[in-house]
Design a protein around this nucleic acid. Structure first.
Lengths: 192, 192
DNA sequence: TCTTTCTCGTTAGGCGGCTAACTATCTGCC
DNA sequence: GGCAGATAGTTAGCCGCCTAACGAGAAAGA
């Protein structure tokens, strides 16, 4: 999931210099932003490289985890519909169709018609899917723990607090900073 | 760039409970990890939704920024080769080919043969590309500043320090936690 | 009852990332 | 000089994600 953000994070002096040209540039905010995106990307890579060893992508893993999490809660196998999976994993229903196709082909999930509503399908973990998850998860968690090992418990609480602040801000407005927007147009498409 | 990480971050009690079943699960580490990925994703979305208004993707923006950054430093138009662009933006050369194709079609960059080495190409910003960047960047920076506004300067320094710690850890090993890995196999492909 | 409207899952098509393989060119060694 | 190997950019093909549109089925209002 390469982000294509500037690979080498710019030094703070460069930001200060650029801020002279662009008054809108807040150096410390930009610095946090770039570090955040880059760090998220690296963290992703750490677990994704492991999942890839099992030929599992992030999308497939999300579906398996959603089914497993659901199974755990209710204590028994409780299948989900594709729409529920889409809701829990945060991708579109169209994407779920593709993911479930792949997982079904690999015999990790089953797709059966829903007994009550003939529009719906019912997606459930197979034994094979459960066993794969059980094999993946210990190392999966181990990698998260390994990555965060340099942080003390106090660091972690602070970190979560800061991340939560930013998350709340991001959720604050559907599209932030409508304020002062006066220039649209000028797009790729505009160059006939 | 939806990550397909569990959309609703699990509550801490759930992590504690899951930790009983999986000894490898470090609750506070997992909590930080999930918040980090989710927050990076949201931050990405905040700026990406703006770039999309100009029909610019993250990939295209990275290429434009790399060319602009290079131009700024040397004070004049200094084109780059696709390989240099790939290096600076962190995607493969193959991807650069596609991105430059699109940008060239939109008259935002030019692609000319390199004068010295006939294997190489020379990619430079057009006037139109420069103008588009000049139009995008103020709002781009404004969004970063807006997102980070809830954080004090002290918060920001702490935030960058924590992110840097994790970044350093991620860079520490090409593939972390080789320790205790004994189970490969068991993959999608294995289910013929 | 029957029509409208909504929801479900799927399909089609696009895009941007990847790897692997290819052609063209340059470089270094005999 | 001439050939082996490295390097540059492109191509082909895969995959996961998206949006838009569709047909089947359910739900609600006349």
């Amino acid at each position: 999931m390469p982000l294509l953000m500037l690979k080498d994070l710019p030094r703070y002096e460069c930001l200060l210099e650029a801020a002279r040209e662009f008054p809108a540039l807040d150096p410390s905010a930009t610095e946090v932003f770039l570090h955040l995106l880059r760090c998220g990307d690296e963290a992703f890579r750490v677990v994704d490289s492991h999942l890839a060893q099992h030929e599992i992508t992030q999308g497939r893993f999300g579906v398996l985890m959603a089914l497993w999490g659901n199974c755990q809660r209710s204590g028994c196998q409780m299948p989900l519909t594709p729409a529920e999976l889409a809701d829990r994993t945060g991708v579109t229903r169209a994407t779920i169709t593709g993911l479930v196709d792949t997982l079904e082909r690999a015999d990790l999930v089953t797709r059966t018609p829903h007994p009550e509503d003939r529009r719906m399908m019912s997606v459930g973990l197979t034994k094979r899917g459960e066993k794969l998850l059980a094999r993946i998860m210990p190392e999966h968690f181990r990698r998260m723990a390994w990555l965060m090992a340099p942080l003390s418990e106090h660091d972690r609480r602070t970190f979560v607090r800061l991340l939560t602040k930013v998350l709340a801000r991001a959720a604050e407005e559907p599209s932030p900073a409508e304020s002062g927007r006066s220039h649209e147009s000028g797009s790729v498409a505009a160059a006939h």
